[in-house]
Design a protein around this nucleic acid. Structure first.
Lengths: 217, 217, 217, 217
DNA sequence: ACTTGCGGGACGCCCCGTTAAT
DNA sequence: ATTAACGGGGCGTCCCGCAAGT
């Protein structure tokens, strides 16, 4: 029988990082509050333009408190990243929890991803900031690499299940997922200087294009 | 008749920015020397990690001298961008000057672009830095937008000529170029955290993939 | 008759501070534990380089606990001083308790002092730290002054007793003690930058020199 | 024949560090002005209590300017030390330039040293601060060690010359100088908490005591 | 009595982009 | 074209309370 949870659970157990991304240990407490606020500021003004004082103020506290939770700005940035990663996985799982058909799941996930990664300006900006930082910071790069890998695995599992069940026809599922993800990143990058490309009007068009790369629709 | 220079000249006259990109006013003198050095430093260490002192030292001069040529760091960054833009266009024109077949031109340009924009790490890093800056700086964004537009126009002119001459079959040339460029940007973005994606080994594979999006080969 | 305790008791009753130095009220409890730990850290890293967190951690407790015992860093430093003062007096009394001959007592005390104040690096470093602090802090200065005065009185009592008993020949006992103590401080100060001066090899040479200033041996 | 300049010049050429102490390269310019001001502040308030802003203000400039001359507070402290070292040597040479008799020279130098190192409170305080710092900072320690060595050599040369000329009777000149210097340091240290010990009233008494250790008078 | 978690200002150093003087 | 000077913060850290638990 088709059981989405199983198929997902299968790899999610292997990738223990995903687990920590979904059920972060920081959730609920003050640290996460700071991280969420920092994420907001970072996505508005950029990593460098946000000071530790700003972050503290956004958390309605002072720097002294902030530095109790995180011992450096680097750690705050890292926490903001984890906040973002967790959000994506939470979103993905919330949206597909009740669905069984893997193709339908793919439709939902792609649609959600377009909305969250491309249309949502805050997320898009934050992502770009982090990637620019990743150019010169190993930890940031590695963090994003792992996140991206988990996303890729997420998609791949669904695609391969769909193919196995005969619901999808793809010669090379892995390559298809890669091309689709690259296309999404391409949109993201171009949106930096062509904001209209990722305006709400384009949402369905982009979604359909990405799905077509997975041979869906 | 098919005349590459004409077809290029056609729109290049319209886009007066392109002209300045190809025949930059700074060329040859001291300012351009600073800009080139700054470009090198920026692509190695990142925009913020490079100080005005570094740039001055790289140009074998002092900060005072640098400030005589450029009145702020912003202007130096802008100049480094122009340096990059010019380089691309010079490269593109040098490579296609003696070729008449537009499809062949496309092959060359795509191949060159892959090498220069994706394989070349310095350029790739600099591009990312600039795009991150463009997120919060209008001038930078506008500059890149114009550059990208000129690149797009460059490709489009060649594609449309090819189609008109029956050398290429494309239902929607504009969209094909867009998809191809998005794919290229996608590679660029993923290469940030997956360096192997743009290693020299992948050069031909990437080139072929991009050309296939233009229905070439 | 010769009674060491009497001669000592004589001034010790006048200087009630000495009493508290020998029978500290903090002894045994948690406060003293903190003070001893702080003393250790101070003599290794210096007063400023040690944070309240460090001291708390050294006492296997948290800062909150430390602040329950002492209400400021100043108080902790003061306590560390008392710890050091007490140690000296305990040491001096333990070493001479069973001896009756005041000259022999002097020999022992000088020898012990050399070992504890000059050869022992921890004590030497701590002393210097405290003296530097005393330059600008009245309380610290006054504390050290009283300690030094008690030490001086200790020596003087023994010297005067010896002279009275005809065991020692000194024209001006007070001056002799002063010169001897100054010489000891001189060694201490020079040892800061000439560590060999107070290495273990020099122990007996220094001791003999100091005793010779009291006309002993 | 007796030629003070020769005898002094003899070792001063050997100790090239002394030369740099007397004819400092910083003299006259702005850097030295900062150093002198810093020295003053340090000797009043202590090394830690003086901020870079204070030093800049004392030099009638801003922090930016100060940081142009010295790249860290450590360097400023080092410069203040050099300022002090130079001062001593200048003073010593100025005072003995026209004198030929080495014993007379010794009288003058000891007298001057008492006045400058012991009676002068600023110098005394600064010295103590530096020595406390030397406890944990190698560079400071080494600097002071070299200075002290140069002072010792200065005295020793005069003493040995005097002995050779039969003007002074000393079995072990080296030891005599050492004992005298230790005694001086002893006064210095005790003056921290017994200010009267180095009050102006005591000047001649101390001087005579120190000279007596060299068997003079 | 003693601990813990957390919060709060203050400020020091360092560095950087930028002008005057010259 | 250059040396010298200028302010303006940012990060990090520190010393210190406060509340609630045990």
């Amino acid at each position: 029988l088709l059981n989405g949870n199983d198929s997902l659970g299968g790899y999610s157990l292997d990738l223990n990082i995903l687990d920590s991304m979904v059920h972060g240990m920081d959730s609920g407490n003050r640290s996460e509050y700071f991280a969420a606020g920092a994420f907001g500021l970072f996505s508005q003004r950029g990593l460098d333009a946000v000071t530790m004082d700003d972050i503290a103020a956004a958390g309605e506290a002072t720097k002294g408190s902030l530095y109790w939770h995180y011992k450096s700005k680097d750690e705050v940035i890292e926490a903001a990243c984890r906040h973002y990663y967790r959000q994506w996985h939470k979103d993905a799982q919330r949206g597909t929890a009740l669905i069984n058909d893997p193709v339908e799941k793919l439709r939902i996930i792609v649609s959600k991803s377009v909305r969250s990664c491309l249309i949502d300006e805050g997320n898009r900006v934050f992502t770009m900031e982090i990637l620019a930082r990743a150019l010169h910071d190993n930890a940031t790069r590695e963090g994003w690499r792992q996140f991206f890998e988990s996303v890729r695995a997420f998609y791949l599992a669904l695609v391969e299940t769909s193919v196995e069940l005969g619901l999808l026809k793809l010669e090379n599922p892995e390559k298809a997922v890669d091309v689709m993800l690259s296309a999404m990143e391409g949109y993201k990058l171009r949106a930096v200087f062509e904001p209209d490309l990722c305006s709400k009007v384009q949402e369905s068009a982009i979604t359909e294009h990405l799905l077509s790369l997975l041979n869906i629709n």
